[in-house]
Simulated assay, not measured.
Amino acid sequence: MQSAVILRVSPGPAHTDRTGHICQETVDKPTRRRRAYLKDLKSRLNYLLQNSNAPSDPASKQHNKKNNTPLSRPSPSEARSWSESFDALLTNKYARTAFRAFLKSEFCEENMDFWLACEDFKQTKSSSKMLSKAKKIYDEFVGPEALREINIDSNTREMITDSLQAPTPSCFDAAQKRVYGLMMNNTYPRFIQSEFYQNLCKTTEETQEDAQWNR
């Protein structure tokens, strides 16, 4: 008489939830990493939303030092106007601050910083200051050893390198236009669709309704 062989299939890895129940682990590592990334993104942007008087935009910092006036959270109607065009966003100090924080969460804030540096550079009148600023921008964003290198083609990079001997206000224009296009076509649409931006566009009543709905 042959004895029966019973095969027992052991369950996959399990974990205990907050209530102490055993739960089957079904979420793979890429999904967990993405969830962690989205949670961190939401935390970063919510921090900016709650601390609107601490701008990270270099231009805003300089403005506040001169005028000693903190940035105020925009009204919902003002925030909604940023979706009309990318230029509408760039001309608003709070919007630039919020957008830069979003860029930072996507690890590409150097694009905004380069664009702002170019705007400041074009306003420079002194030739000696222009030379020093051009070298600083090149070393930080353009050169082969740049730690915050922007995404531009080799021809544009060579043109900028050649112009460093006698820089003009337009020597970074091609690179700035390229970076502007990257932000407008890639990051700007994602920012407009982000939960952070959508919250800025809501009225107090809508925010309270959402809070009650999520209880």
Rank of each mutant, 00 (worst) to 15 (best):
M1Y: 08
M1G: 13
S3W: 06
S3A: 13
I6T: 09
L7W: 05
P11R: 14
G12C: 08
G20N: 00
C23D: 04
C23I: 15
V27I: 15
T31Q: 15
R33A: 11
A36T: 09
D40F: 12
S43M: 11
R44G: 00
R44D: 04
R44A: 08
Y47N: 13
N51T: 08
S52D: 09
P55G: 03
D57H: 01
P58R: 03
P58N: 01
A59I: 14
A59F: 11
N64G: 02
K66V: 06
K66C: 00
N67M: 03
N68I: 01
N68W: 00
P70T: 02
P70F: 10
R73V: 05
P74A: 02
E78T: 11
E78I: 10
S81N: 12
W82A: 01
S83I: 00
S85E: 00
S85N: 03
K93R: 14
K93P: 00
R96W: 04
A98S: 15
A98Q: 07
F99W: 06
A101N: 07
A101Y: 03
A101M: 06
F102W: 04
E106Y: 07
C108Q: 07
N111A: 10
M112S: 11
M112D: 06
M112R: 01
D113E: 14
L116N: 08
C118Y: 15
C118R: 04
F121N: 03
S127P: 15
M130C: 06
M130A: 09
M130V: 04
L131P: 05
S132A: 12
K136C: 08
I137N: 05
Y138N: 08
D139F: 10
F141G: 04
P144I: 05
P144A: 03
R148W: 14
S154Q: 15
N155R: 13
T156Q: 14
M159C: 12
M159L: 14
I160H: 08
I160Y: 04
S163H: 04
S163V: 01
S163Y: 04
L164H: 09
Q165M: 12
F172L: 04
A175E: 02
A175K: 04
K177F: 10
L182F: 02
L182K: 12
M184T: 11
M184Y: 06
N185V: 10
N186C: 11
N186Y: 14
T187I: 09
E195F: 05
N199S: 10
T207V: 02
A211E: 13
A211I: 11
W213R: 13
R215H: 12
